[in-house]
């Protein structure tokens, strides 16, 4: 079995996941890690899948669902190295404040400068239309340690007037 990363995007409506996964199942594919969510009225699917033959066969299997639900599909073959799940995140960074341009860019630039590897980022625009707030939760690995994360983010609190929390994400094996 070879592996690929499948991306599917379409206007949100009930039945997208069912149609896509049923087509994949019928084509002999199996689904690995997946992340699916509604974003701005659209539904996005990102998932690792193992497929038995060639990617062309996978695309063909998806064709009926794609046409019926007006989806856009993208398939990227994965090397076995890239398909590895990687290590669990060890740090969670929470950011919230009055929404304005540049928050994500400045926070992630600071994190990148210390080699912080983002495993997962979720954000939401919330609050009232007059006073929008921005909330972001980042989980990732901090090779330089959690103190380095705190240090590199500390100046942003004042400069961007945002609240930033840095929490250790200990994985307890019991």
């Amino acid at each position: 079995m070879s592996q690929a990363l499948l991306t599917v995007i379409g206007e949100d409506r009930p039945g997208i996941v069912a149609a896509v996964t049923q087509a994949l199942y019928t084509a002999g594919c199996s689904i690995g890690d997946a992340s699916m969510m509604r974003l701005g009225g659209y539904f996005a699917i990102m998932q690792v899948l193992s497929y038995p033959q060639d990617l062309g066969a996978v695309e063909m299997a998806l064709d009926a669902a794609v046409k019926r639900l007006n989806l856009r599909v993208h398939l990227d073959p994965l090397s076995s190295v890239a398909a590895d799940g990687g290590a669990a995140p060890d740090t969670r960074v929470t950011v919230f404040g009055a929404d304005r341009p540049g928050i994500v860019a400045s926070v992630t630039a600071a994190l990148a400068s210390i080699g912080f590897n983002i495993v997962d980022l979720e954000s939401e625009r919330s609050g009232s239309p007059e006073h929008p707030i921005y909330i972001m939760v980042i989980q990732g690995r901090a090779p330089a340690g959690i103190a380095a994360v705190q240090e590199v983010l500390a100046p942003l609190r004042e400069r961007e007037s945002i609240d930033i929390g840095v929490h250790p994400l200990e994985t307890v094996v019991l």
Partner: peptide, 8 residues
Amino acid sequence: AVGREGCM
């Protein structure tokens, strides 16, 4: 509190 767990 939220925490990440694993299990043998």
